Amino acid sequence: MNGVSTRKYKEIIPEMADTVGVSKSQISREFVAASEAEFKRLCERRFDDANILVIYIDGIQFGDCHVIAALGVDSDGQKHVLGIREGSSENSRVTTDLLNDLVERGIKADRLRLFVIDGSKALRCAIDSVFGHKNPVQRCRIHKVRNVLSYLAKDQQQPVQASMKAAFSLDAKKGQQKLQKLVEWLDREYPSAAASLREGLTEMFTINRLGLPLELHRCLGSTNVIESPNSGIRRWTCRVKRWRDHSMVVRWVAASLLEMENKFRRIMGYQHLWILETKLNELAEKSGIAKDEQVA
């Protein structure tokens, strides 16, 4: 229509771009401004009216920059990006700051919630410090299986993995007994694998101990719910060849998470979340937390 051959469009587009102010540097400035706005929006979001039952926390790494993210699930099974912080989940100050920020923005500490985390000791301590030690914590089973298998000979990995998965499907008492026997067996030839399995063993069965239906175990037994968005972030940022600084990483993570949030689906088994809410309320009553403090 404008006398430009389709064979020559690659040559003419750069010239056109310069005439309308869409140079590479201009696009870069526009994206910096847009991503800063998204990060600000994420940091200022409030959750006073959200009935958050579950909080997942996990980390993602870009080069030498670590970012931890918190994702919440409400009573309808909807996922909410709660917040992010630059730093490692092994850093107690970073994890505590992240959780304190959630409290300030409406995720109050006056009720019980289920936390799903990896094996970070700093994060576990931060939960106790900010939200109280009575909140149930579920350790990610997938992380645990990977850690244990990493210490084993290849021919031992499949049977150990099968034993662990079988134990997770049992009630808490029987499941822990089964894994304790596995620990004793591993101690003979694979002491590092045994130590890994022994660490945090009780919290591997938190959802079993709460008596939650199997339909919820897949989503509540691991941090996959938040690892999936983390994979999405890597797809969004795969073309970035060089991270200029850590603030760039944080801005990209914030913008990516908020964009993906629009496409989040409800968690599997969300129809049974009322059972989790009931169990949390019962646990709160037994723990001496006032019932009127359970209102979201």
Rank of each mutant, 00 (worst) to 15 (best):
H133C: 11
Q156H: 12
V116M: 05
A70P: 05
R244I: 14
R146E: 05
D245H: 09
I13T: 13
G59N: 10
I289K: 09
A50N: 00
L98M: 11
K154T: 14
A172V: 06
A162N: 15
H217W: 10
V4Y: 07
A69I: 11
L283W: 13
E184C: 07
A69D: 13
L197G: 07
D76T: 09
A193F: 08
V130E: 05
E189M: 10
Q294R: 14
L273P: 01
D110W: 08
R235G: 06
V20A: 12
R188F: 05
Q158L: 15
M268P: 00
K8M: 10
D187V: 06
L98I: 06
K241S: 10
N208L: 00
A69G: 04
G3M: 08
R124Y: 02
T6G: 14
R85F: 04
V160Y: 08
T223S: 03
I226F: 00
V22H: 14
K263R: 11
G221D: 10
Q161G: 15
I142L: 04
E199K: 14
S5V: 07
L152F: 07
T237M: 09
A37P: 09
E227F: 02
G77H: 04
T6V: 12
A50D: 00
D128K: 02
D58W: 03
I117V: 10
S163P: 04
G77N: 02
A194C: 03
H143N: 11
S247K: 15
C219D: 09
V32W: 12
T95D: 10
S92R: 08
G175R: 08
Y9I: 15
K263E: 12
R146Y: 06
T95Q: 09
L197W: 07
